[in-house]
Amino acid sequence: MNIFVLVKRTFDTEEKIVIQNGKIQEDGAEFIINPYDEYAIEEAIQIRDAKGGKVVVVTIGGEDSEKQLRTALAMGADEAVLINTEDDLDELDQGAAAYILAEYLKDKDADLILAGNVAIDGGTGQVGPRVADLLGINYVTTITNLEIDGTNVKIVRDVEGDLETIETSLPLLVTAQQGLNEPRYPSLPGIMKAKKKPLAELELDDLDIDEDDVELKIETVEIFLPPQKSAGRILEGELSAQVKELVNLLHTEAKVV
């Protein structure tokens, strides 16, 4: 099986967001593989181990993204590809990212492409389905179970907390939801091996992409932090009196019940 995983480097979930000169401050921040992409990598490795083939992880980014690709290789992916847009593009929107990935993938004969269902930074969840549409293949989002038998695929997906069982076939793009699996931590031998695994770097020129092809369709006007919540009231007194007061406050002051 020819398996590709689309990954993104994101802020660590522990990070606080600081805005300076209208931009999110990245200096000193810790970066990780987008957590939903880790499920996709783990699933890809398990499928390869069961069915054979190879797992290629692909990302769009700058030199810094190499670290996350090496982590994916250390988990067990076979090859990594960095599509480096650092010199060509300041910003990417979802349509542009999908176009670049699809241009890379179009002649790769992928049987299965996996991605996270959403990235925890931008939070749009658009890139996976857009890539599938550009490649003309089917896609299934927010999957929690995947069984492959030949080219037949049986999937369970999360739909607003309900579980939907569906049947489809390869080639296919799926996006991972939490609960799909338990992503492994890279082992020490894995980390050593990862250093020698192939990591290719491509630029837009290598994919015959003009800057016009990836023109932004969305313009960011402003980035801002939500209003700081001031700490509220800690109620006091007998527990039963506190509860009475709380219900009264919710009813008459906050008016939410």
């Binding site: 967001i17 969305i218 006007v221 980035i223 801002f224």
Partner: peptide
């Protein structure tokens, strides 16, 4: 729209 799961927000528009 929220970004970083609501740790920040962005104000955007469609260019054309």
């Amino acid at each position: 729209r929220p970004i970083y799961s609501g740790k920040a927000f962005e104000k955007v528009k469609i260019k054309d």
